[in-house]
Amino acid sequence: MRYTTTENYPAPDTFDFADAPSDLFALASGVDAKFPGWDAIFAASTKQKTFRVRSTVDSAAITPLNVGFLKTPVTIDFDNTGGMLSTSGTLWSQQRVAGDGPSWWYFGGLFLVLEASAPTIGKPVGVNLAINDTNTDTNASITTNIYGDSPASNTSGEFVAFQGIVKCYGTASGIPTFNNGNTVNYVVKAGSMFWGTRLGGA
């Protein structure tokens, strides 16, 4: 038997008519064994992992210089990542996909926050998505913050967008928090949401 140089597929070395069936079987089996791995890779590559979480009710009033959260219940608009919400409802835990190594993720979100009375124009309101993880090489804890802010305007409410790319090692978890830097109460409106999508292996 001889073997092809690149993929190591078997082929007859010298022609022996009696060996032809077994030679063909070896070749077919060699190719057959190679393809399932490719099938799995291609199937995964066209189905990137992604999720989105959205609140369905307004939060309670968040007083000046304090933080608030998406009010539960929240709903998962879509998810094929294997991630999960905590029982309290707003902490998203991103499990590492089985067999996967560290990966780059794109996380982001959009909050609509509404003031209770005339805000101080220009004073900020913002969102911080803190993502906690453990470096599997060093066992060091990592916190990566993604910020977004929007100085208060004279509009009715502010949209606060935040987004960033984070390297996730293991079971990363994150929860977006609203930071009220203004002088009046705010609520985080229903419909505020955050999302994540796996960009690829790190």
Partner: peptide, 28 residues
Amino acid sequence: QGAVGFVASDIAASGYSLTVEGTFSNTN
């Protein structure tokens, strides 16, 4: 599907529409 509508300061959930909004104000 499964998205949310933002309309000005009012938010209405809808199963088949997505509206996200940014605002700006160049005031004062």
